Amino acid sequence: MACMMKRKFDKYWEEIHGIMGVAAILDPRYKLDGLEYKFSRICEDPNECTRKVERIKQACYELLHEYQKNTSNSSNMSMESTQELRVNTDDDDDVGYQLYIRQKKKKKCSFVKTEFDHYVEEDVHPLTPDFDILAWWKVNGVRFPTLQKIARDIFAIPVSTVASESSFSTSGRIIATHRGSLHEDTVEALMCNQNWLWAEYYKRGGKPDYQTANEDDDAFYELTEE
């Protein structure tokens, strides 16, 4: 069983550890320093540690580029429509030339890279127990607008799917064939009551046996249906 669990963990870890690395970099208490420290303790080979850090760092640059490109496209569309109307109305060649220069500067702009570099070059935030990372990004979003958008999306991803899978399993046991017409409020009440009852059982030192409880429920409903 343990070997099967480890294989499953390794499978998903290969797919998501890059995003988790990005999340660690976007934590101002760790940034690249925290990532390098953790990998140095995991990897025996320093070169492998460097490759892993660079891979996640490259993922940050790619995300920045993608987010910045989407932002630039939306702003360019609105600006170009306004500028085009002005050029057509005034028929002024100087206005068209100014638009051309502005677009050329944007192509040369390295805003995405410098924003990330400025962020990682700053000192890390002290490790305090009451640190609120969402509040920090809300305040510092003015300085790092693109990184703020990435942090908003990254930190919204649940770390584990255990809670959602457990909810689906619990609801599947409640909404069975003999309970197919239950109202959604009734289902919610049953699920909450189950959690509260098991919580009280835990406080008394008991160890809930969900499998036995579910089998008892099924047996009870089979008897009532007969």
Results as ranks from 00 to 15, higher is better:
M1P: 04
M1W: 07
C3W: 10
K6W: 12
R7T: 12
R7C: 09
K8G: 09
D10N: 12
Y12H: 11
M20H: 08
M20E: 14
A23W: 00
A24Y: 02
I25M: 02
D27Y: 00
P28D: 01
G34S: 05
E36R: 10
E36P: 01
S40A: 15
R41Q: 11
I42V: 14
C43Q: 04
D45G: 03
C49D: 04
Q58S: 10
Q58L: 06
M77P: 00
S78G: 09
M79E: 13
E80H: 08
E80W: 10
S81E: 15
R86L: 14
V87P: 00
D92E: 06
G96A: 12
Y97Q: 13
L99V: 12
L99T: 08
Q103I: 06
K105H: 10
K106C: 06
K107V: 05
C109W: 07
F111D: 15
T114Q: 03
E115H: 02
D117S: 06
D117Y: 04
H118K: 14
V120M: 01
E122Q: 14
P126W: 03
L127H: 13
D132C: 11
I133K: 04
L134G: 04
A135M: 12
G141R: 01
V142W: 10
V142R: 10
V142F: 14
R143K: 15
Q148N: 10
I150Y: 00
P158A: 04
A163Q: 08
S164E: 07
S164F: 08
F168Y: 13
T170K: 01
T170G: 02
T170I: 07
S171F: 11
I174F: 01
T177M: 09
S181D: 13
S181Q: 14
L182D: 00
E184A: 05
T186W: 02
E188L: 15
A189M: 15
L190M: 13
N193T: 09
Q194Y: 07
L197N: 04
L197H: 06
W198A: 05
A199F: 05
Y201I: 05
Y202T: 14
Q211C: 07
A213I: 03
E215N: 13
E215L: 09
A219P: 01
F220V: 07
F220I: 05
L223V: 10
E225H: 07
E225N: 11
E225P: 00
